[in-house]
Design a binder for these strands. Structure first.
Lengths: 238, 238
DNA sequence: CTAATAGTGTCTTTCAGACATTATTAC
DNA sequence: GTAATAATGTCTGAAAGACACTATTAG
């Protein structure tokens, strides 16, 4: 990597942003904050911030921002790198490059109240994709990438369980796939496929559940991270 | 992203590194340079360098480094983001974060002679993975990620054609899959599958080729970027 | 002719999608 | 009993893997 002799370096700021996706009821949502400062004051944006210390790990910085701006504990969450966004004109104040992390959270009962930043609120993905909620900077493009990533990873990895509580029913798992993919699935085929993937879900004892009909068995995530065979997405919506 | 008030920022250097993969004969190879400066003087490393100007696009910087260090023209190459590497201790000289790009090149006849940097040489992937060629910094980890990315993308995208010349035979395309995956494939099933993917490869007129046996038809890459159905990788080697 | 590479067809198993049926609860 | 949700089974067509066979060249 560094092969050049020392020379004046351009001042580049490194930011860390977060795309936090969740499922609340049957609605696929993302956590957005309302910007309190210029530029884009009053617009919605992804939560994030700059690196604070020289020796701060970028991943740790993501966890810190998560805590500060949304009061979520990253320890139990699924967090992964989404990508790097470095176009020179993406921030009107100067050269800012952003490392973006993708976090998946189980459905949380209340719109999270930000402690440090201004209002943080769960927002429907549909609202954003339709254009009714414009985003600051290049955050719309980032969100598009995050959604595509999530949709693809549902097929090949056990990511869907990250949207669920520690124990869940198969019907709940199906709602994850339906909401993220924006399709309807056949429950009977879904049961067969999900149960046929070794290590995807394991029965959590002979539990039951509150409803009107027949009680459902509870499961928790197995040790598998990649799914063999995969849960394939219908041709529609691709 | 930026939500904090201005405060002293840590000096962070932004580097751009490249993983350039190719196929020479039946050997899967990566372009490495030999470092001329400390740290890791004399070790092999991925080509790369720092951002030169404040307003330089990171993607453009990758193209520039490609040109400077390997004399390759990025215009015809497949280039995509691989990831962001930002651990605070990854460079002993200070805080350096690297944006890494993955480039795929068709088999080039000669080991490329670097113009700007010291010796650049194609190196067998097997040599590196076996540990016989140690890499500087965290470049071994980066290379592992790149290989896994390439292996997965062969299944679902038309990436394999990026390893080939503008026109190629089906047998040549098969050699790409075999070398990158490290497996042997049945030619007859491979023919059937490849031809069955709409838009993957299209016949380039009724051409022929030099060999001893029956001449092969020539193809070029179609307009498809994602493969339906995918070319699935055998269970082995996963 | 033989050797060598290119390409097609056929059989079997496995899996995805469509859909009928049974099971267990609340009322 | 009815309504509602959970779970299993059955049929059909598409696709994957194994493998036999035909086609076209050089010599």
């Amino acid at each position: 990597m560094p092969e050049k002799k020392p020379r004046p370096r351009p001042p580049v700021l490194v930011a860390v942003d977060l795309v936090i996706l969740t499922l609340r009821g049957s609605s696929f949502q993302v956590l957005l904050i309302e910007r309190g400062n210029e530029p884009f004051r009053g617009s919605r944006a992804l939560p994030g911030g700059f690196l604070k210390r020289v020796d701060e790990d970028v991943y740790d910085a993501a966890l810190r921002e998560l805590q500060e701006e949304t009061d979520l504990d990253g320890a139990g969450l699924h967090i992964e790198q989404l990508g790097f966004y470095g176009k020179p004109d993406r921030d009107p104040r100067g050269r800012v490059v952003s490392m973006v992390y993708l976090a998946i959270a189980p459905g949380l009962p209340e719109p999270v109240a930000g402690t440090d930043a201004t209002a943080a609120a769960w927002t429907s993905i549909d609202e954003v994709l339709s254009g009714r909620v414009p985003l600051a900077f290049d955050h719309r493009e980032i969100l598009d990438d995050a959604i595509e990533r999530a949709r693809t990873k549902l097929e090949h990895t056990a990511l869907a369980t990250a949207f669920c509580a520690p124990t869940f029913t198969i019907a709940e798992l199906q709602r994850v796939y339906e909401a993220v993919w924006g399709v309807e699935l056949d429950p009977r085929n879904f049961y067969r496929k999900v149960q046929g993937v070794p290590g995807f879900i394991v029965s959590a004892g002979a539990e039951r559940r509150v409803t009107k009909g027949r009680p459902a068995r509870l499961f928790h995530a197995g040790q598998a991270t990649v799914l063999h065979p995969p849960i394939t997405r219908p041709e529609t919506n691709r």
